[in-house]
Amino acid sequence: MIVRLNTILQSNFKGSKEELIPILQKVQEEMGFLPKEAMYNIAKFAGVPESKVYAVATFYAQFRFTPIGRNKIMVCRGTACHVRGAPRILDEMETQLKIKEGETTADMEYTLETVACIGACGLAPCVMVNKKVEAKLTPKKVVELFGGKGGKGGKGGKIEN
């Protein structure tokens, strides 16, 4: 891991404090999350105390410290989505995936998160599946996303890698 990390660091960054957030973003993009060991080495590379790296990483909602599922589902909790029923969409997602917001399924297939707003308010309520936005959702459509009742990730669902 450290070899891979060093390659990411050396080939993209100079090693200054200003780069700390971009470094964390890049490392997370490459590794899927921020392992403690990586953060420790980033601190050395950027020339900041390791407590600072941890302080910054835990401040921003984007960073995660556990591995992420193969599919990332982000339920929008924007105002427009809320007044058009986003809480029930999240409920249904949690029921379908049998996990809570912020968790990953045991088979590492799905990670369920909420996001402040994805800016597709005109088409509320919506969720972002990987990089694609699913619009005007209803609990029923959520069930269809996963290929029918109880068919978490089963065949026929719209969510695929």
Partner: peptide
């Protein structure tokens, strides 16, 4: 340093 934010903020060591 501080870790996390808002009501969940803590005074924390690395990790």
């Amino acid at each position: 340093d501080f870790a996390s934010r808002g009501y969940k903020m803590t005074v924390s060591t690395f990790g």
